[in-house]
Amino acid sequence: MSPHVKHLRPLTIATLITFVAGLSLTFFYAPIELNEGFVQKIFYIHVPLAIVSLCGYVLGGIFGLMYLRTGKRVWDMRSYCAIHMALIFSIGGIVAGSIWAKAAWGHWWVWSEPTLVSYLIVILLFCTYQPLRFSIEDPERQATYAAVFAVVGGAFVPLNFIVVRLSVQYLHPRVFNLEGGNLPGSMALTFYVMLLAVALLFATLMKYEMLAKETRGQTRRLRRRLLGDENVAPIGRSAAPL
């Protein structure tokens, strides 16, 4: 197994157990919310997805910084996988969140909720990560530029939240509270278990992606050694690190 991917099996099992526990709590333990009914339960999915994906972006930025400091390709790989996963999670988060918003507020989209709006801006920004990588041919330059992008994007996440929150407070009186600051105990427990489960899922999937990428690289190296450089088709243009 790759030297960079460790503890994959225990991590996978832990993710599975926590997820089953979290979903059981969601459906059988947490009370049905009085105003919103059963649909409210999607709250236990989309908020953890959103929180974890935002942390994933910031993590991608930190890994990018590590790449710039050390020049080691594995950091580029980590940064890429973190942002890739975060993007998938945040698409899930925004779709689930939109369903919840329809159920809770009667609209698929609300501009008066700063968390939602700034989340959208962050997604828009990180959607350009893959196209950026894809359009730089030289792999080394691709890694460096992607790392710079990741650092800027990672720092942009919290800053953007502050500015958007300020603006929404200014333009709209605050009506909704997405965080649900004072959840009753049973709901809070369910929420935190689900948050942990989604975070573990993020870590597991990220590690699987890294493993897959590294295995692919290893296979190519072996093929090149066995068959000779000329007989292995050159790698196509790719957004992913080698």
Partner: peptide
Amino acid sequence: IIGLPLQIP
């Protein structure tokens, strides 16, 4: 496409 989101704040 990179610049516009960054300029939003």
